[in-house]
Amino acid sequence: MNIVKHLRESNYQSSRKKQYYRRNQRINAYLSTIIFAALIGTYLDLLLVGAGLYSFPKRPFSEVFTINILFTLCILPLLSLIIIFVLTRLHKLLRYLFLFICSLFVYIVEQTAEQYGLFIHSTYWKHEFSLFGYFLFLIFIWKFYSWLDN
């Protein structure tokens, strides 16, 4: 009769270390990605507001910033975090459908925000720019997260 004993040299501890390392890697990937999303969103807003394509008449610290820092530094990173969290649980084909639905949602919300005076777009602006722009932005953010997580 064989009796199996736990050896001190077994890799049980190593397995726990790998899980800990993997969890830290994932947390770092999430944090890095939301910071990256905030930076990209801020620079894109600075560029597009500077080009006169749109403006934010109602924004915090309007005497200091030409962009809506509440959106680029709080709302956009939070939504990016939620979207990445959902994407990690979806099948590959459903990910792109989900990203397109998110972009479509932003397309609608942007037009609604414009009606409430939160946005002013130039006459050259087409809201389809936002639809495709956010779709590409979200794909880019997802690819960045995937790269960091692997």
Rank of each mutant, 00 (worst) to 15 (best):
L97M: 15
V64L: 15
L118T: 00
K143W: 02
A29W: 03
F61P: 01
F36C: 15
F137K: 08
L81E: 00
A37Q: 08
Q111Y: 07
F65C: 03
R8T: 04
V86A: 12
K126T: 05
K17H: 03
E9K: 15
F129S: 01
R59C: 01
L48P: 01
F100L: 14
G117L: 13
V64F: 12
Y96I: 14
F144Q: 08
R8N: 11
Y30C: 05
L7M: 10
E9N: 10
F71R: 02
L131V: 03
V64W: 14
Y21D: 05
L70H: 07
L90Q: 07
G117W: 13
L46V: 06
T33R: 04
F132V: 15
L46Q: 10
L94T: 02
V109D: 03
I69Y: 06
I69R: 11
M1Q: 11
V4W: 01
I139R: 06
L47W: 14
S146L: 05
A29V: 00
K143T: 09
I120A: 14
V4G: 03
L7C: 10
F85R: 15
F140A: 11
L78C: 15
W125G: 13
F100W: 04
R8D: 05
I139V: 02
L87H: 03
T72G: 01
L104D: 08
L94D: 00
L131M: 00
I139G: 05
S55R: 14
I108V: 11
S15P: 00
E128D: 02
V109S: 07
I27A: 04
T72S: 01
L47E: 12
Y124C: 02
L7E: 05
L31D: 02
S80M: 08
L138S: 10
S103Q: 13
A38F: 10
A38S: 14
Y124F: 05
I3N: 11
G41C: 14
P77V: 14
S55K: 13
I75A: 07
I40Q: 02
T72Q: 05
F135E: 03
L94I: 09
R22W: 12
F105V: 05
G133T: 11
L131G: 00
V106K: 12
Y96L: 14
N150K: 14
V109E: 05
F129P: 00
P60M: 15
